[in-house]
Simulated scan of single mutants.
Amino acid sequence: MTSTGTTESAFPDALLRIRDLRVSYPGKRRRAPHTEILKGVSLDIRPGETLGLVGESGSGKTTIGRAVLGLVPARSGSITFAGERIDTAGPARRRALSRDLQVVFQDPYTSLNPSRTVGDTLSEPLLGHGTTAREARGRVGDLLARVHLPQDAAGRLPREFSGGQRQRVAIARALALRPRLVICDEPVSALDLTTRRTVLELLLEIQEETGVAYLFVTHDLSVVRFMSHRVAVIEGGVLVETGDAGSVTTAPRHPYTRALMLSAPVADVAEQRRRRESAAALGGKAAVTAADGG
């Protein structure tokens, strides 16, 4: 069922549970007031589920993922993973949590060390968690096969691959420790349309095989519709609509969500202009630019 507001019904079996999360960033000048980015966000993700988190640039969607990963501190609220409170976890516990919590970033090139071979990149998290060098080599071969890359890719550098292939390497690295949740932060927005669909299909294939859950962060409602079981829409640090993907992406209730839908690009120029004018009437300029990444 689709709902509006900042909270959604709790799932007793939730893998990730966020409650009333608030995050603020300091001002650019000394003594400048902090800017509140997240304003009491609550959401759940169940095992094996994809929750699509959609909103324009600056809406706070990436900050949610960063808070889950411990990259930004929570001002208040709580983040619970597999029944454990993790927003207050120290560095040592955070390192241990990386076995279960991983991330795929937007840019597949800058997220990979350009001077390290693919094999070294994929081996690093395994060796860091006590895997022997021999076991790591075997696991690297399995990971390359899982993301449909040739075995000789292990000896090559990131610059020798296309953007889509580099993102496959990044996905393989995220899967190395067999995580339970992967945060996908705009993982296909830097790719061309054909490559984008191939990578999305790969992520779905991996989820079906492994049961991994995804927090899928994007500005693109069409991608959310393709990938997600449920969708949460965020505007200005507040969740304005949550529900199953079919309902939210075909019959949204909140004006901001409708504006995001109308601002999505279409092939017909005249239709695109009409949709953007309608989006502007619903959600203002910010919503119109959302489909372009803000």
Score class of each variant (00 low, 15 high):
residue 109 Y to P: 06
residue 16 L to K: 06
residue 20 D to G: 11
residue 120 D to W: 10
residue 115 S to L: 14
residue 186 E to M: 10
residue 149 L to T: 08
residue 226 F to I: 00
residue 272 Q to M: 10
residue 157 L to G: 00
residue 113 N to Y: 12
residue 234 I to P: 00
residue 43 L to F: 07
residue 145 A to R: 14
residue 35 T to Y: 09
residue 232 A to M: 10
residue 63 T to A: 06
residue 30 R to L: 15
residue 85 R to D: 13
residue 122 L to S: 09
residue 48 G to L: 01
residue 272 Q to S: 13
residue 53 L to G: 02
residue 219 H to C: 02
residue 233 V to D: 01
residue 169 V to K: 01
residue 263 S to Y: 04
residue 161 F to M: 07
residue 253 R to H: 12
residue 64 I to L: 13
residue 267 A to I: 03
residue 259 A to S: 13
residue 116 R to H: 15
residue 129 H to A: 07
residue 198 T to L: 15
residue 292 D to Y: 10
residue 130 G to P: 09
residue 88 T to P: 00
residue 109 Y to Q: 12
residue 182 V to A: 09
residue 137 R to G: 14
residue 9 S to M: 06
residue 108 P to S: 11
residue 269 V to K: 03
residue 169 V to M: 05
residue 17 R to E: 14
residue 151 Q to R: 14
residue 33 P to M: 11
residue 135 E to M: 03
residue 77 G to Q: 03
residue 158 P to F: 05
residue 38 L to H: 04
residue 22 R to M: 09
residue 94 R to M: 14
residue 252 P to I: 06
residue 166 R to Q: 11
residue 170 A to N: 04
residue 213 A to P: 00
residue 168 R to L: 05
residue 261 M to H: 04
residue 133 A to T: 12
residue 27 G to S: 11
residue 122 L to N: 07
residue 119 G to F: 09
residue 83 G to Y: 03
residue 46 R to E: 05
residue 115 S to N: 14
residue 189 S to Q: 10
residue 96 A to Y: 01
residue 94 R to I: 11
residue 27 G to N: 11
residue 80 T to Q: 12
residue 67 A to L: 07
residue 138 G to N: 13
residue 215 L to I: 04
residue 12 P to G: 08
residue 22 R to Q: 12
residue 195 T to N: 08
residue 265 P to M: 04
residue 286 A to L: 12
residue 19 R to G: 04
residue 154 A to V: 04
residue 231 V to A: 09
residue 233 V to I: 15
residue 99 R to N: 09
residue 121 T to E: 07
residue 221 L to H: 01
residue 227 M to L: 03
residue 237 G to Y: 03
residue 1 M to A: 14
residue 168 R to W: 06
residue 294 G to R: 11
residue 77 G to P: 06
residue 37 I to G: 00
residue 261 M to G: 00
residue 81 F to S: 06
residue 24 S to K: 12
residue 8 E to R: 10
residue 225 R to F: 00
residue 225 R to G: 00
residue 86 I to D: 03
residue 235 E to L: 11
residue 87 D to S: 08
residue 15 L to M: 14
residue 61 K to N: 01
residue 274 R to K: 11
residue 119 G to A: 07
residue 180 R to M: 04
residue 19 R to I: 00
residue 17 R to T: 12
residue 221 L to N: 02
residue 94 R to E: 09
residue 250 T to V: 02
residue 18 I to C: 10
residue 169 V to W: 01
residue 138 G to D: 13
residue 183 I to D: 03
residue 288 V to Q: 04
residue 134 R to E: 15
residue 160 E to D: 13
residue 266 V to M: 00
residue 274 R to S: 13
residue 13 D to W: 08
residue 229 H to D: 15
residue 188 V to K: 05
residue 67 A to G: 09
residue 279 A to S: 14
residue 47 P to L: 05
residue 156 R to L: 11
residue 199 V to F: 08
residue 94 R to Y: 05
residue 65 G to L: 05
residue 227 M to G: 02
residue 188 V to G: 08
residue 62 T to K: 02
residue 161 F to Q: 06
residue 47 P to Y: 07
residue 204 L to P: 00
residue 135 E to N: 12
residue 267 A to N: 01
residue 59 S to Y: 02
residue 164 G to Y: 03
residue 194 T to Q: 14
residue 12 P to S: 13
residue 118 V to D: 06
residue 163 G to A: 06
residue 260 L to K: 02
residue 24 S to D: 14
residue 215 L to Q: 02
residue 149 L to F: 10
residue 282 L to G: 08
residue 82 A to V: 01
residue 68 V to A: 04
residue 152 D to V: 05
